[in-house]
């Protein structure tokens, strides 16, 4: 069974935010809405200071709290692990937003454009259906599905791979089938130590953070 997952190699990410820009371009999200964000974290005190760049967004959980709480069934999980939102069902109650431990959900009440009035590309891609409802990272599900239909392999063929992964200049983001022993994601996880965010909550995120090579 396919289980799409993403891996962020924290050793590689340089915090350039190219993935954020690529996501915004690919998904036409309004200003302030970043389905893929990169946090710039600092730890410790001088002279023992560490810095990490941490890509975050929807973790496409195995047991998504956002789905359980949704009163409309707008949030669903596909058999391949991708968590989706049906914009036509969503009432914009934002219950999913407070249920998500990863702050991955956005609700934009009115149309926003980068320069006030929409520029040509914004006008063309604006979608009223996404106003006043919950939105979030989709793992670029349309690209994944369309790519599979063409016989392409998500995570390998760019046309079938999420935009953030394609754009990553440090190869820090990887997308693939977690359950396929031949996939890039499976190999990365097998060869390295990794963790998932807030794992103690039992949500089973489909987003892994690699932090070191495998022990021994």
């Amino acid at each position: 069974m396919t289980r799409w997952a993403m891996v962020a190699d924290l050793r590689r990410c340089v915090g350039c935010q190219t993935c954020t820009a690529a996501c915004r371009h690919a998904n036409a999200t309004p200003p302030g809405v970043q389905w893929r964000r990169v946090l710039d974290m600092e730890f410790g005190e001088y002279p023992d200071v560490h810095r990490a760049f941490v890509p975050v967004g929807c973790q496409h959980c195995d047991d998504p709290p956002c789905m359980d709480v949704c009163p409309t069934t707008a949030t669903k999980k596909r058999s391949d692990g991708i968590v989706t939102i049906d914009y036509d069902l969503c009432i914009g109650c934002a219950y999913c937003a407070v249920a998500c431990p990863y702050q991955a959900r956005y609700k934009t009440q009115k149309a926003l454009f980068a320069y006030g009035e929409p520029i040509a590309s914004e006008a063309k891609r604006h979608d009223d259906a996404r106003l006043a409802v919950a939105t979030k990272c989709t793992f670029c599900v349309d690209r994944v599905d369309a790519g599979i239909e063409k016989g392409l392999q998500p995570g390998v063929d760019p046309e079938a791979t999420p935009a953030c992964v394609n754009s990553c200049l440090a190869n820090a983001l990887t997308f693939g089938d977690r359950d396929d022993p031949h996939s890039n994601v499976f190999r990365l996880l097998a060869e390295n130590q990794h963790f998932r965010m807030h794992e103690e909550l039992g949500t089973g995120p489909g987003f892994y953070y690699v932090w070191d090579k495998a022990a021994g």
Binding site: C70, P71, A74, L89, C90, I91, C93, Y95
Partner: peptide
């Protein structure tokens, strides 16, 4: 009060769709 907060108030009846797992539906 809460109805005035939801993004799509005209779809408010959708709140009844998910009694299987949503406590908001059960509250409604």
């Amino acid at each position: 009060c809460v109805w005035t907060e939801i993004g799509r108030p005209l779809r408010a009846l959708h709140v009844f769709i998910n009694p299987r797992s949503s406590w908001m539906t059960r509250e409604a």
